[in-house]
Amino acid sequence: MLEFFIGHYAYWLVIILLCVGIYGILFKKNLIKKTIGLAVLQISVVIYWVAIASKEGATVTTLDPNIPVDQVANYLNPLTHTLMLTAIVVGVATLGVAFTLLMAIYNRYETLDEQELLDKIQ
């Protein structure tokens, strides 16, 4: 039972973080808060990918001459780390685009509240 908990608690924390992000996206009325929820959801996915790359007793993905590279279990999985490395930077850039669009919306309609925005559009 304890082994099951140690093997799975990271997934539960990631799921809680994902639900916090979905709560922000669905239930908040302000568009800025929705965008922050989107960022939290994205970070939860990043943490999940980094969590599944771990191995028991392995070292970081930089080659150490004393540790043989033939046994794969000696090193963490570098593929997921690489994918998330690019995903973080692209996430920052897309967050910049999201806030840019919010600024454009505010310049035009002078509100960021969802309901007021729908009323002004119609």
């Binding site: 099951f4 093997g7 997934y11 771990s54 028991e56 279990a73 999985n77």
Partner: peptide, 28 residues
Amino acid sequence: LVLFAAVLIYASADLPMRGDPDNLMHAE
């Protein structure tokens, strides 16, 4: 939303143990 989280946590019980070197994604 809480129900959604409960379903996800129930489904995560079938995921492999974190840190197990014998996972399929860590195999050769």
